[in-house]
Simulated scan of single mutants.
Amino acid sequence: MPTLAVLTAAGSGSRLGMDLPKALVELEGLPLVVHAARRLCASGVVDSLVVTTPPGLTAHVAAMLWSDPGVDRPVRAVEGAGTRQASVAAGLRAGLAERDPAAAGQLPPAGGGAEVDVVLVHDAARPLASPELVRRVVDAVRAGHGAVVPGLPVTDTIKRVAPGADGVERVTQTVDRAALRAVQTPQGFDRALLERAHAAAVHREGDESLAATDDAGLVEDLGVDVHVVPGETAAAKITTVHDLRVAALTLQEAR
């Protein structure tokens, strides 16, 4: 049964301070979205991709991925929405729908949307998540865990705080970090479970203050268990220029 990957690339990347969307920012000569798509394809467990794009850039991103030799799976590009949750929902609908293959030259998901049984949701802002990590997540879903996220142990001391005077917060608790995990992507799901989670939260997706920041949170809201597999430092999220420099160093060291 096929696995669909929804690759979110619709963010503005304003904190990077550049005049183009984050997914199109180059890392060692390649846009972040291309790095991420290449690694999804290299995993060998992804059969098709849907990429959500900034407004007006769908054709550009699609052409970029179709022409890249490292992206060797069918790709569809769709315009993202105002929140991450809404963008993922749009990508999910597009990836699972039966589409005319000739429409805008885009290819349908391998095997047809109706046959997809596992869905990955991944962020182009984590361009160096390895093929091994992708396989680890998909293998765990196929082993019977309906929702799976990669996570790393938290190494910093964590304090719970309360508001204080003059902007100085008061510590109320030191949190036990042994049971804490910093969650990454790709996140993997049983297709039916992810569809149900998004349907239950559709009323939130248009409001940035209410929309989910990750899809596992939507599954948790259903009362369904989410499971964690080991993450990796290479899957760090790129948010700032410093993060971009660290990612470049990671690539250089890997070579």
Score class of each variant (00 low, 15 high):
H122W: 05
A104I: 10
V154D: 00
R84F: 15
R181G: 04
D19K: 06
A254L: 06
R84G: 05
P74H: 12
P54R: 06
K237V: 14
D225I: 06
E28S: 10
R142W: 06
D19P: 01
V137H: 02
H227Y: 11
G164T: 12
V34M: 02
L30M: 10
T240E: 11
L210G: 00
V246K: 08
V88Y: 03
R255Y: 00
L107Y: 07
K22M: 05
S87D: 08
A201S: 15
S43T: 06
M1E: 01
H242S: 11
H60Q: 14
R136K: 14
P131R: 10
T174K: 14
G29R: 05
R142I: 08
V78L: 09
A147E: 02
P69E: 14
A200V: 10
V50R: 04
K237T: 13
V224W: 05
Q85A: 14
H242Y: 14
T240V: 11
V45G: 04
S43P: 03
L210W: 00
H203F: 08
R142Y: 04
V25W: 03
V168H: 08
L27I: 05
G105W: 12
P131Y: 04
L107E: 15
V137L: 05
G17K: 04
L152R: 09
K22D: 06
L180R: 08
A81I: 07
V75I: 14
L24P: 02
A129E: 01
T174W: 14
A212V: 03
V219Y: 01
G11F: 04
M64N: 07
L7A: 01
A10Y: 01
R73C: 11
V175F: 10
G13I: 07
K237I: 13
A143W: 04
V121C: 05
E26P: 01
V45Q: 09
G95P: 15
V71F: 09
H203S: 13
A199P: 03
A162L: 12
P230S: 07
E79D: 12
P55D: 10
H227M: 05
V228M: 03
A81C: 11
A236S: 13
P153S: 07
A165L: 15
P108G: 11
H145M: 07
V229P: 03
R142S: 08
A199E: 15
S14I: 11
V148W: 01
A77K: 09
D156S: 11
V51T: 09
D100S: 12
A236R: 14
R39M: 06
D214E: 11
A200S: 12
A234N: 08
L49R: 06
R99T: 15
D214N: 13
R245A: 12
D207A: 02
D68V: 14
L133K: 07
R204I: 03
P54F: 09
R39N: 14
R15A: 12
E220K: 08
K159H: 13
A114E: 15
H242G: 12
L92I: 13
R181F: 09
G112T: 14
G144Y: 07
E205Y: 03
V78Y: 03
